[in-house]
Computed example of a mutant assay.
Amino acid sequence: MKKQSLIAQVTDQLRAEIAAGRWSVGDRIPTEPELCEMTGTARNTVREAVQSLVHAGLLERRQGSGTYVIATDEQEVLLGEYFSAARRRDLMELREALDVTAAVLAARRRDDADVASLRELLDRRNRLWRREGVDDPAERSELISADLAVHRAIVVASHNQVYLAFYDSLLPALRAFVDESGVGPDGSYEAGHTDLVSAVIAGDDAAAGEAARRLLRCLAAHPAAG
């Protein structure tokens, strides 16, 4: 009983850290030894607590990479499950509405930190997506994460917290959507992603909105893209 109580306490502590934004969606949480030091508990306790949050849908283990935050609360998980069951057309129409508006707002509101982040994430995303024949699940997951990180960074740059919270609830569905398709050069649309980020960085809201719309329509027409 004491052990279960301790696991529950650590689970609640980690859940609170996620809810407070210590680890954002897409972030890798600390390693087990680091979590042991942080919580003052044994490795088995930490492992059980993390597994509990994996079952709850807040965390995801990625073989050879670590454990990542995929949602910030259980309500977000439920909403994500709803989106995951949505039709492809419905999801893409919703994503277009969100991404285009976010791109326009990001071009108007991005700051120096946003610009630096977008440049770094775009460079990493494009480099990864040039790989041919990506079959390894861990590598595939890495490419998908890099792609979604660029799109999410644009929403972050909009500096609209409601948009960001809603977009984060879409991420599990978007990840599953991309995971069912191919990744790599054929579905990369590198030029489209580069045009979008460049317009946001340049502060050209009209060009950013059009670039987002053009890119998403290409992605919708090509099921092997992310």
Score class of each variant (00 low, 15 high):
191 A>N: 08
38 M>G: 00
170 L>Q: 11
24 S>N: 14
96 E>L: 12
14 L>V: 06
102 A>D: 04
195 D>M: 03
135 D>R: 10
93 E>Y: 13
33 P>Q: 08
101 T>P: 00
24 S>I: 08
128 L>I: 07
90 D>N: 10
34 E>T: 03
119 R>I: 09
52 S>H: 08
141 S>V: 11
89 R>M: 03
178 V>H: 08
37 E>P: 02
197 V>G: 02
201 I>C: 00
140 R>K: 14
59 L>N: 02
3 K>D: 11
80 G>A: 04
81 E>C: 10
103 A>I: 06
106 A>Y: 00
123 D>W: 07
28 R>A: 12
158 S>D: 02
127 R>D: 08
44 N>E: 13
140 R>F: 12
205 D>P: 07
115 V>M: 09
90 D>W: 13
161 Q>C: 01
47 R>K: 12
176 A>Y: 07
143 L>A: 08
75 Q>Y: 14
6 L>N: 02
68 Y>N: 07
40 G>T: 02
24 S>P: 06
152 R>C: 07
167 Y>F: 15
13 Q>D: 14
86 A>F: 13
32 E>N: 13
61 R>P: 12
31 T>I: 05
172 P>L: 03
80 G>Q: 01
123 D>V: 11
210 E>F: 07
15 R>I: 11
13 Q>L: 11
121 L>P: 00
184 G>N: 01
165 A>C: 04
54 V>D: 09
203 G>R: 05
67 T>H: 07
186 D>C: 08
113 A>C: 02
7 I>C: 02
208 A>C: 06
101 T>E: 11
179 D>Q: 11
6 L>P: 00
190 E>G: 11
76 E>C: 08
134 V>Q: 07
208 A>N: 06
41 T>L: 05
162 V>N: 10
133 G>C: 12
194 T>M: 01
70 I>M: 03
197 V>S: 01
188 S>C: 15
44 N>P: 13
68 Y>C: 10
188 S>G: 10
175 R>F: 12
103 A>D: 03
205 D>Q: 13
17 E>H: 10
10 V>L: 04
44 N>Y: 06
149 A>Y: 01
2 K>N: 13
214 R>H: 07
44 N>I: 15
189 Y>S: 03
14 L>P: 00
48 E>M: 14
204 D>L: 09
218 C>G: 15
42 A>L: 15
23 W>G: 03
98 L>K: 04
112 D>G: 01
52 S>G: 14
201 I>N: 02
155 V>A: 08
87 R>N: 14
178 V>K: 03
149 A>D: 09
203 G>V: 05
152 R>S: 05
196 L>S: 03
137 P>N: 04
165 A>F: 01
86 A>S: 13
70 I>A: 00
217 R>D: 06
72 T>F: 00
20 A>G: 02
142 E>G: 12
215 L>R: 06
